[in-house]
Every structure is written in structure tokens, then in C-alpha cells.
């Protein structure tokens, strides 16, 4: 079967090293595909190319077999899009905007807009101008999902959402995936992609550094486990039992890559009086470092 998104040697050179260079990847039908990269890595630029806003300098991208620049309108009939820099038509209310967009899409009604508003606890009667950033993000999400598109292109979809709403969003994403939708989303946080994506593309400085199944990245990711003990002495005792632990006052931290050693660590620490424990999921740089053993 043909992939939903086919990107072949895609290059958009804005000069001075800005842009994206020679990207090649494919996204299969029903797949959730993540773009991971720090700010300015080229995530948004790539999504803009897929949307047909800019013409590639070299190479090309096809969605559902159609050229992303020349046949953008035909592709849009099957696509839901959420821009990364969300600006809405401030003269409208939330509901007015959704109605307008539904008409622009040629929809008969509002699709699943009501259900989605319910999911995100969105009151659409307010003017968009007066909405908070998170509320506006919800309007954008409802707009992207309401037509039940085959493909969703979501640029930093959870930005501005509180943790509860981020969870709602993940629920929604998994439901759409179960329905058979293909989803491409970008993020600069590994955790966000970890919960939803099948595969992740790592972008840095406009180049595609890797495309890996999420499980492979998870395996190589380094996490920091920090334990707080009642006294510096007990922290020191713990570090003596676990070589490599870093002691700082009465707390000790351990860096683990993969999951092999986790149960050994937990059973060791269970023998101590632990006051507190925290896990740092590891930054993007950490994930990258773990996978490649080099600096981002």
C-alpha cells in the first residue's frame, strides 16, 4: 500500500543555514508520526511544506499521492491542520469561527465540533480576542479534528494546554488513530510524543537525524532518578552500594539508560529510608545523547 505522506529529498533553503535540507521519510496509513526537535530545527518549516504554503527549493512532498504545493487544495479536503503559531480571526467568536471554517470546508454541519467542545470543556460563545492562549488552542484543535479527516497535521498541538487537557488531547489522538486516521505531530518534548507516536523523526538544524520506532528511542533514553534520604550519611551509604550515584547533600541521583537495571535499582533503594523520589524523563538532548552518544 502507498504511504500517506511521502517526502523525498525535501529542501527549503532560506539561506544562512536556515530551512530544512534533504528530508526523506514516509508516513504509513494509520500511523502516528512524531517530529522531535528543539526550536528552530525545522519542524514547522516541514509542516508548512506539507501544507503547500511554500514551494520546495529541491525535492518534493506528496500526500495521498498528490503534490503538496500544486495540489494543496485537493489534499486539504482530507486533512486537518493545526498551525504552530496560532492566530485566529479575532472578529469572530469561537463558535462563529468553527461555523465559518466548516462552511469553508464545505461541510454540511459542524461535524463532531460539539462533542469535541465537550471533551475540551470549551465555551465557544466567547470572542476569540478575549480568549486565553489555552482556550484559543482548544478552538484550533476542534477545528482541526471536527471534519474527521484522514490525515492530521498538528504543529505543537499541546502548547498552552494544562495537563488535564493534554491528557484529553492524547485520548482524542488515540481514538482518531483507532479510527484509522494518519497523524503527524511535532513537539520539542519527548514525553509528549512517547505516549502517542509509533515512530519519531528527530530533526536538528534542518536535517533529519534519525527516524526510529518509539520503542527504540525509549530503550536508549537516559533518565535521572533522584532519591532523598533522611541524612547525608544515608545518601552516602546508598551511593556506596550503587557505584555511579551522584550524591548532593542528603540526596543521590542515578542515571539509567533503558530499563534493564531499573528493578535492581528499586530493590536496592527499597532497603533504605527514602523520603522522596523524583524521575526526570530526560530532555530531548538526553534522548539524543543516549541514542547517538554525541551532542545535539
Amino acid at each position: 500500500m502507498n504511504p500517506v505522506i511521502e517526502v523525498q529529498g525535501l529542501t527549503k533553503d532560506y539561506g544562512q543555514g536556515r530551512g530544512v535540507f534533504d528530508l526523506t521519510f514516509q508516513v504509513e496509513k494509520g500511523e502516528v508520526f512524531g517530529f522531535l526537535g528543539p526550536n528552530g530545527a525545522g519542524k514547522t518549516t516541514t509542516i508548512r511544506q506539507l501544507m503547500g504554503f511554500v514551494r520546495p527549493t529541491r525535492g518534493g512532498a506528496r500526500i495521498l499521492g498528490k503534490d503538496c504545493f500544486r495540489q494543496a487544495a485537493a489534499i486539504q479536503a482530507h486533512t486537518g491542520y493545526l498551525p504552530g503559531e496560532l492566530s485566529l480571526m479575532d472578529d469572530l467568536t469561537g463558535d462563529g469561527f468553527l461555523r465559518f471554517m466548516a462552511q469553508m470546508r464545505g461541510m454540511k454541519g459542524l461535524g463532531s465540533a460539539e462533542e469535541l467542545k465537550e471533551l475540551f470543556r470549551l465555551d465557544g460563545r466567547q470572542s476569540l480576542r478575549k480568549m486565553s492562549k489555552g482556550t484559543r488552542q482548544k478552538v484550533g484543535l476542534v477545528c482541526a479534528f471536527m471534519a474527521h479527516p484522514e490525515l492530521l497535521l498538528l504543529d505543537e498541538p499541546t502548547s498552552g494546554l494544562d495537563p488535564l487537557m493534554q491528557n484529553r488531547f492524547i485520548e482524542l489522538l488515540l481514538r482518531e488513530k483507532a479510527r484509522g486516521a494518519t497523524i503527524l505531530l511535532s513537539s520539542h518534548m519527548f514525553e509528549e510524543l512517547e505516549r502517542t507516536c509509533d515512530r519519531v523523526a528527530i530533526l536538528r538544524a534542518g536535517h533529519l537525524a534519525a527516524v526510529e520506532p518509539i520503542a527504540a528511542l525509549r530503550q536508549t533514553r537516559t533518565k535521572q532518578y533522584q532519591f532523598t534520604f533522611p541524612s547525608p550519611a544515608s545518601a552516602a551509604a546508598f551511593s556506596a552500594a550503587w557505584p555511579g550515584a551522584k550524591v548532593e547533600g542528603s540526596s543521590a541521583s542515578v542515571a539509567l539508560t533503558g530499563q534493564e537495571e531499573l528493578s535492581r535499582l528499586l530493590s536496592l533503594v527499597a532497603g533504605y529510608d527514602v523520603k522522596d523520589m523524583s524521575v526526570d524523563g530526560g530532555s530531548l538532548e538526553g534522548a539524543f545523547l543516549g541514542y547517538y552518544g554525541e551532542e545535539v
Binding site: 501544507m51 485537493a74 486539504q76 498551525p83 503559531e85 469553508m104 464545505g106 477545528c143
Partner: peptide
């Protein structure tokens, strides 16, 4: 300028 053109183009309407 505002970027709202993105919404108009995110529909099956040709430019």
C-alpha cells in the same frame, strides 16, 4: 500579516 491566511488555505479552496 496576521497568519490567519493559513486557516483559509487549510480548506479545500484553491489559493
Amino acid at each position: 500579516d496576521h497568519g490567519t491566511m493559513a486557516w483559509l488555505l487549510a480548506t479545500p479552496r484553491p489559493r
